[in-house]
Design a protein around this nucleic acid. Structure first.
Ligand SMILES: [Mn+2]
Ligand SMILES: [Mn+2]
Ligand SMILES: [Zn+2]
Ligand SMILES: [Zn+2]
Lengths: 141, 141
DNA sequence: CCCCTTATTGATAACGAATATCAATATAAT
DNA sequence: ATTATATTGATATTCGTTATCAATAAGGGG
């Protein structure tokens, strides 16, 4: 199986885009993160390795990673986060309104019923977003 | 059962807030809309009845209506919309990525499994968001 | 009804995340 | 190497929303 670098390179080639040192570094830093990461934190880490990389390039590259299927973008609590999406199963999130913590889960039946609903409406499903908001175990204490 | 005006008045009293002509007009215009409405359209309609009402007051009042449980706020395709929430059953949305149309649906089993997931994680569910993105029947043709 | 505290208002400045612009530079195909 | 074109970083710009603030209004007590 191809690794993320090869997947990204292939994606770029396919779209007549170019493999650059900036894109390489951004991908390197991104894949060593885990969980949901915001642009700001990503930028700090990238900046510490190469202070010349501009914020615009980071935004542009993250968009490419999403298009390439290597990153997933979420917006929780007015905040945009990116999540690695490589050999990671699809999942949805519980989001604590108090501490902001997210809990990941998957529920095959829910996914199945989503498809059912779409079929019933002649709708071709491409992606979905499901977020459950509330109060987590820790914050209830 | 109380109507929306009484509910809003009660809400305001409870929070030591005041019933004003501006809030009355905004609620009047809001409840005669159906479906998902953006601030801009709401503002146009309000402006035609009273050009002196400022946009800030509209934003402030819509937030109050959400808090009072009379309006629901969504963000589809980077656009914030408000939806009337009075004697309207909870529902989720299919959103066409081509034409932007939304289709409403409800699925009791999905809701049930959502609760199940929350219980399993000791999570107290307060609200949720579920949006299915894809291509609608019209746009596929 | 008046008084008085406090909420509300509208105009407008400010914010901030994300994007557009653009001239200089780098990439990769030939 | 040459060449066409994609990319870059700095920076200006966008735009929906919120903060500021002085003037005004609401509404409870008397
Ligand atoms: Mn996740
Ligand atoms: Mn709806
Ligand atoms: Zn929590
Ligand atoms: Zn459509």
């Amino acid at each position: 199986m191809l690794n993320e670098f090869d997947i990204f390179k292939d994606f770029l080639r396919h779209h007549h885009l170019r493999w650059t040192p900036q894109r390489k570094l951004i991908l390197e830093v991104f894949i060593e993160q885990q969980g949901h990461i915001v642009i700001e934190d990503l930028h700090k880490k990238i900046h510490s390795q190469d202070p010349t990389i501009g914020i615009a390039t980071l935004y542009r590259t993250m968009k490419l990673l999403v298009d390439a299927g290597l990153a997933d973008m979420h917006t929780f609590n007015e905040r945009t986060t990116y999540e690695r999406l490589y050999k990671v199963r699809h999942h949805d999130h519980l989001i604590c309104k108090v501490c902001g913590r997210t809990i990941e889960f998957e529920h095959p039946l829910i996914e199945k019923y989503q498809l059912e609903v779409c079929e019933r409406h002649g709708f071709t499903l491409r992606s979905h977003r499901m977020e459950l908001f509330g109060i987590c175990n820790e914050c209830r204490k």
